Computed example of a mutant assay.
Amino acid sequence: MGFIEYEKKGEIAYLYLNKPEKRNAIDSVMSDLFLEYLEEYKNDPQARVLIITGKGDKAFCSGRDLKESKDNPEAFKKKPLRGRLFNAIIETYKPVISALNGAAVGAGCEIALASDIRLARKEIKIGMPEAKRGMGATFGATILPKLISPSFAAKMLYTGKLVSSEEALHVGLVDELLDNQEQLMLRATEIAEEICECAPLSVQRIKETIWKTMDVPLFQALQLDIGPNVYESEDRLEGTQAFLEKRKPVWKGK
C-alpha cells in the first residue's frame, strides 16, 4: 500500500493520505504522488468529485514532514508545497471536498483551504503554526482572510494556535461537523453524489468563476466570461428537456 492511495467509486474519486504512523505528514515523495493523482482526477471525464481524507483517527494531515528538512534538505527546498499542491487542488476546476478525519495542521490546513467544501470530525484541531516554526504560511495567509473574518484569520496566523473544529465551524472555516469518521465519509459522499446530479460543465464553470473572481471588483467580475460556454452546450438542452419531461437528465459533459 502506498503513502497516497487513490480509488474511484462510480463518478466519485477518493484520495487518502496514508501515513498514519507519522500523522499523515507530507514529504516530497508523497507530494509528487498527490500531484500525480490530482492530474489523473483532473483528466478523467468520468471522475466528477474528489474527496480527500486521511487514514487513521489522529490526523487528516499534520503538515509538511519537517524531518525531511534535516534528512534531505535539498528535496525540502526544491519542492515547496505552497506553489504545488494547493494551487493544483484549485486548478483542477472540478470539485474537491476535504473530509477532516483528524487534526489538520500547517499544510494539512492549507489543503483543506484549497478545497471547495470542508467537513470535519468533532473534537479535532485545525490551524497553521508556521509562525512558531519560523515559516511563512504563504498560501494560508493569502487565502484564509478571504474565507473567514480577516481579524480572526490574523489571530490564528500570528499566534500559530490551533482552534477546535467546533470553533472552526462557528467562524466558517469548516462547513459541517460529524460525530465520527464513518459519518464524516458518508456525508462527504452524500454531498459528492448531489454534485454529480448536476451538469459537469456547469459545475466546472461555477468553480472557475468562484476562484477567478475572488479578488476582482464586482462590476468588473460581472463582465467576465469564465470557464466553458455552457449556454451553447448539449447539456443545457438536455437539462431543459429533462426538466420539461420530469426526468433525470443524462449529462454528456459537452
Rank of each mutant, 00 (worst) to 15 (best):
D44M: 00
A25W: 08
D179Q: 14
Y6I: 08
R121K: 15
P73Y: 00
I143R: 05
A137G: 05
R133T: 01
A112Q: 01
N24E: 10
V29Q: 13
K254I: 09
P249R: 00
K212S: 11
K207D: 06
Y14Q: 09
A47W: 04
K254E: 14
S149M: 12
E39C: 10
K146T: 10
T213P: 11
P73G: 08
L144N: 04
A104D: 02
A59D: 13
M128F: 06
D235E: 06
S165A: 06
S115P: 00
E91Q: 09
Q181C: 10
L244S: 12
Q220C: 08
I4M: 01
A13T: 04
C198D: 11
V105W: 01
N229Y: 06
K94M: 06
L218I: 12
K79G: 04
G134T: 02
T92W: 05
Q220T: 15
T189W: 03
Y37H: 05
I124S: 07
L50V: 04
N18R: 14
Y14N: 08
V203W: 04
S233L: 03
A104N: 00
T213L: 05
D215H: 08
G140I: 00
C196I: 10
E176Q: 13
K132W: 01
G108A: 03
C61V: 01
S28I: 00
L85M: 07
E197L: 14
P129R: 07
A103Q: 08
D65H: 06
Y158P: 05
L186Q: 14
F60I: 07
S233M: 02
Y37K: 02
